[in-house]
Each structure stands twice: as structure tokens, then as C-alpha cells.
Design a protein around this nucleic acid. Structure first.
Lengths: 351, 351
DNA sequence: TACGTTCCTGAAAACCTTTTCGGCATCTCT
DNA sequence: AGAGATGCCGAAAAGGTTTTCAGGAACGTA
């Protein structure tokens, strides 16, 4: 006995397959009593429709592919969660594919997803810098999240790193800090540059100079946070606040400040970036930080994608005979780069 | 122009759909020259078969569901990665569903996955303790990873926490430590109990007592690691090694040891648990720890699942007429709980 | 030449659902 | 009572593939 099909339900209810289908899908042309009979039969048999067959005919599978290069990383997961709950579990299921940063594997996954007839794709990169586009002529809409696409014709959703940097420094200034340093990660990351840009802009508005007279670029590690802090204290012992480019770096900063016996936040305030909970919330003292709102970014990506899917379906249906203009489905997506603002999370490290 | 179908390929190659199908699937009853023509046509059109249609007829979708309750957590991700690469991206795609720890949402997801006709399921819990079974009469094989199922008829794959505890203490003993303390997390977690059990067993073999005369149960946080260490040092100042139940706790331990000016590892060695890289590798000094081999666990889960799927298909096919014994597909899985050993990762915190 | 093999190909059924459209019965209105 | 409208239902096609089975061609043999 295989799985129960619509035929079984129809038979039990004493109607045709067509009627059973209409009854279960809420089509109006079914008498109320008939509908009830069908629904009861379906419940009794614990019927659930075969989505493969549905997808085959409706040309819509209710699945999306999430193509990431950063599974172990902390970026794709919140995005995934945001996407998941925006889609709603009954409607849409998510295929998760990790390309491990390998372009070939990515192509493989892409092909597999397309042959599974996903309705759309979300691409999540491993770093916030631009990444190659999957191409313009895909049969489904694509959204790039976190890492923007290099092709401006694609729709990308990214964190507002400039705004985040500004937000961090603004917070420090509001707490009366005047001698603010910035220790951050790898200078080749656009995110590092952007955060520094935002920070400097806010300082300039206030007529302030950066403490230590430079942005301390290095690596995204606790060790770099430690050594940079030592150098900083040597060059500018009067520093009263540090904006760290990541929570990891901030942990290193805290560590050295403790060693030097400098009270936090009395003597020096510290703010991080990422709101990586395990690091920030457990720090001593708990770390104020900038949250990139990645879940919101994921939700937004899902919403945009949804809209695009509906759009292509409608336009695809109506334009089928009228136009054969372009195979691309991305027409439904307003191209460009959308920016999601950051959010300040205050804890005790800034008072 | 919709997606290219087998009909298009057949037409271009000048054969029937049936022949095209056989040619592409490596069926023997096709002349070599014909096969070539079909393959070239398929390549030229960039054909990829509609997996929905394939699944509909072969009764096999090449998809599995991964049902987790711990997405943001660090446990499901490595397992997911292990599963992903064991499946091989061309063959199998993974639906990822996060139930957020809610049983109702889990039911929802389960229903959705079944109606998508996944070939199998992997269930990953949020804590290492037993969780309710999804039930015995599911139409596909199910494997429980990390959290075992409460039903012994299911197949569960879990970490060997007892062995891990033993491994940690053994490592400390081999480095000449005799006064070993154990600070760990919530006593209601089976994992905490098991790790302690393993640790105590190894100590007993050596005729040693636990330093501080007790296992320090508390919470899985850095803060607890700090306060427990202070209490420990007060009660037993001569302690020369600490086995922490998690890397978070270990970070707290390190912190206080630094404050007290006790050299690590000279004066006190510290070992953690989890090998949570961001915490362990960046610690000062880098933290020795126990790795739970979660990726391997994921790979193993995928392999077992694969075997079960093949098994049910074959037996399902051959037994279809002969027997109508049970609807359950799990007959192909040897039930019980399989245990995956832990692995020692040595860094500088133990010398 | 007639017949039996062996090879290859194609028509058609099957998988399960949705949707269109024709048809029957029941009403409504004159 | 007859004509038209309305409400419900079912037959059938469609979606893209796999697989079975029948039949045609080519070949070898008697």
C-alpha cells in the first residue's frame, strides 16, 4: 500500500478526482455538503497531496534554493532563519546548498537546483564584498544577500556598514567620549573600509581626530585586537574609547585593557561589531556592539523573492503569447543594491 | 519558451522521447551512434531533466529533510555539512527546516517534507538528551543525530560524551597533572553527567580524587566558569588542571586564572570541550579541547540513511506483492544507538 | 527464398494532480 | 409549460519523464 492519493480520497467520498481536488482547494463550484464529505475523507485517510505532481502542473514547486559559501560562518545562518520564517513553513521549503567557496561546486548546485525547478534563489556570500553574478539569463529570480553581485543588474541586499560605523562612534560621542580609536580587521575587506568611513565621518562632524592618529587595520582576530591595543596605548595613553571592527577584536581589546588595569567602561569604553552573542554577551563586561540585522536581511530577501516569483508567474502567464522578449525572469526584480540599516545593542562596556 | 524538455532533445536528435530517455540514462538497448546524437543534442540545448517528473514516476526524489531545532546553535551546522558532502550534490539535495524547538512547528515541517516525498529524514536536536520519536510508522527512514530518540526502535547517532570526558582527563594525567578539577554546565544535561562520569572513571583508574572534591555543575556560560574557578581556588589552591565542560566555561576559567596571576599551562593546565573554534583557537593561550566530530557524525548519518533508502527501495519493490507486513520503512535500519568517538585537539593550554 | 535471431526504435501507459469545458439537473421567469 | 440561467459534477488533457512491449529492419542460416 503506497501513499494515499487523491484517487483514494475521491473514492471514499464517492466523487470524481476532479471534484475532490476542487473541494480541497477551496474552488467555489462545489456544493458545501460535497466539500465536507471530501474533506472528511481526506482527514480520515490522512491525505496530503503529492507536491511533485502539483509542481509539475502548476509550474511552481514552492521551493527556493539557498546557495551559500559560508555555512560554518555566522552570516548565512541568521539569513537562513529570517528567510525561513518569512516564507512560512507550509508554503515554501528551502534547499540549502553550501558551495564551500568553490565556483565549480556552485555551478553544480545551481544546475541541480534548477533541475529541481526551484521558484527562486538566494545567494549568500562568505564576505561582504561583491561576488560574481550567477548570470543574467536564469529562469528564476535571484537575490544576493550579504555579498552583493558584481552585476548591477542583479538585486543585492547588503548591510549598511558605513551607517554601522557611524552608529558606533555616535554612541561613544553621546557618552562623552572624545578620544576614540578604531581597531579593525583586514583592510582588503570592503566592510572594514566602510565601517571606518562611517566612523571617520561622524568624528569629523564633531571636529574630532581619531585617537592614535590612524585606523588600525589588521586581521579579524582576538590576537590582533590585543596587539593593536598595546600599540594604541603606547602611542596614545589618553584614549577613552575603542570602536572595534568585530566582536572578536573587541574581546582582544578588553583583554589587554584588563591587563593594564584600565577600568571598563569608566576609563575606556569599548564597542564591537556583529553582535555575535557568544562573544559579546559573555564578555567581561558584556559588550556593546553593532548588530547587522541579518535576520531582517534574510526576511527582506525572502519577501523580495516572493514578490518576484509572484510577478514572474503573473507576467509570465499573461505575456506568454504576447511577447517572447527575454527569457530572464529577473525583470520582476527592481535591480540595484538595497541597504539594511544596523542596530545598536548597548550593554555595559560603554556604560 | 519554457525550459527545454526531453521532447526538444528528442526532436533535435531525430528520435522518439523514449529513445532519448534511454540514451541519456545509459540503457543498453540504444545504438552507439544514436546515443551520441542524443547526448550532443542534450548538451547543445543545455538540457537538464525535470526532477519532479522523474520523482513522480521513479518514486524517488533524491531529497532528504533535515529537521533541526537548533539552527543558530553550533551543533546542527557541522552535522549538516557532513551530511551534505556525504550525499554528493548531484544526487541528493537537502531541505533544511528549523522547528525552533516547537513541537507543533515540527509536525508542520514533517508533514510538508512528507508531502514533498523526501526519501529520508535526519533529525537533529538542540541538546544531547533524548527527544520524542517522530513515530514508528513513517513512510521513510529516519535517523536521529546528536539527540537520540526516546524510542529504542529508532536509529540514533550520538556523541560519546563519556569517552570524551575520559579522553580529556587522560590527556591531563599524561601531562603529569594530579590535582584535576572539573567545572561543567547544567547538571540536568545528560551530556554534563556523561562527561563527568568519564572523567571520574579515568581518575579512579589512577587512584586520584577530584580536586575541589566535587564536580562543579552550573550553567554553560563564561560567567559560571569564572565564578566556579574562584570558588575552586579558594577551596583547593593547589589545583594543577581544570577540565571544563565546554569551551565557553573554559574561557571563564582562563580569565580568572589570568587575574590570579597563575601561569597557563605551567601552573594550571586547562582543557575545554566542543572545539568551538572561535572560542578555543583565539583564547590566550589557545585552548586544548575535545572535538565531538560532529561532521563525521553527519556523514555517518547520511551514509546510514542512504543505505536505508536503497534498502527500502529494493525490498519495497520485491516485497510489494509478496508481503504487506508493515508500512514502516525503518525495517531497513538496524535500530539502536550508535556512538561516535570524540577526538582530542591539543593546543597550548595544556602544554 | 523462407525463416528465425538479434538489434534497435517508438507508441503508450503510468506517476498524481490541476484545470477546462461540456453536460445534466434544478430553478426562475414569462 | 417552455426558454433561459444557474449550480454541480465528471471526463479528459496537460505537465515531463521512465519503462514495457510490440514491431520493423537487418542479418545469418538452411
Amino acid at each position: 500500500m503506497g501513499p494515499v492519493t487523491l484517487r483514494d480520497v475521491a473514492q471514499l467520498a464517492g466523487v470524481s478526482i476532479a471534484t475532490a481536488s476542487k473541494a480541497l482547494n477551496g474552488q467555489p463550484q462545489v456544493r458545501a455538503s460535497t466539500r465536507d464529505r471530501v474533506i472528511r475523507a481526506a482527514e480520515q485517510l490522512n491525505f496530503s497531496p503529492n507536491t511533485l505532481a502539483q509542481g509539475l502542473i502548476t509550474q511552481r514547486t514552492g521551493t527556493v534554493g539557498l546557495l551559500t559559501s559560508d555555512l560554518e560562518g555566522r552570516f548565512s545562518i541568521p539569513i537562513l532563519m529570517g528567510a525561513e520564517d518569512a516564507f512560512g513553513s507550509d508554503q515554501t521549503s528551502v534547499f540549502l546548498c553550501d558551495a564551500r567557496g568553490d565556483a565549480i561546486r556552485e555551478k553544480h548546485h545551481l544546475r541541480a537546483l534548477l533541475s529541481r525547478r526551484v521558484d527562486g534563489l538566494i545567494v549568500v556570500g562568505a564576505r561582504p564584498d561583491a561576488r560574481p553574478s550567477l548570470g543574467r539569463d536564469l529562469p528564476v529570480p535571484v537575490i544576493y544577500a550579504y555579498s552583493p553581485s558584481e552585476d548591477p543588474a542583479d538585486l543585492s541586499l547588503v548591510t549598511d556598514n558605513v551607517g554601522g560605523g557611524r552608529l558606533a562612534v555616535d554612541h561613544l560621542i553621546r557618552h562623552g567620549r572624545r578620544r576614540i580609536a578604531h581597531i579593525t580587521g583586514d583592510a582588503t575587506y570592503g566592510a572594514a573600509q566602510d565601517r571606518a568611513t562611517g566612523a571617520l565621518a561622524r568624528l569629523a562632524e564633531e571636529g574630532l581626530q581619531l585617537a592614535g592618529d590612524q585606523v588600525w587595520f589588521g586581521s579579524w582576530s582576538e590576537a590582533w585586537g590585543r596587539s593593536a591595543t598595546r600599540m594604541l596605548l603606547e602611542r596614545d595613553p589618553g584614549v577613552d574609547a575603542v570602536f572595534a571592527g568585530s566582536d572578536e577584536i573587541a574581546r582582544g581589546v578588553l583583554d589587554v585593557l584588563h591587563q593594564e588595569g584600565l577600568d571598563i567602561p569608566q576609563r575606556v569604553a569599548v564597542i564591537g561589531f556583529d553582535n555575535w552573542n557568544i562573544l559579546a554577551a559573555n564578555a567581561r563586561p558584556p559588550l556593546s556592539t553593532i548588530d547587522m540585522n541579518l535576520e531582517q536581511l534574510g526576511r527582506l530577501a525572502a519577501q523580495r523573492l516572493f514578490a518576484a516569483i509572484d510577478g514572474t508567474l503573473r507576467s509570465g502567464a499573461s505575456a506568454a503569447g504576447a511577447s517572447a522578449s527575454g527569457a530572464s525572469a529577473s525583470g520582476a526584480l527592481a535591480p540595484g543594491t538595497e541597504t539594511v540599516p544596523c542596530r545598536l545593542v548597548t550593554r555595559e562596556s560603554t556604560g
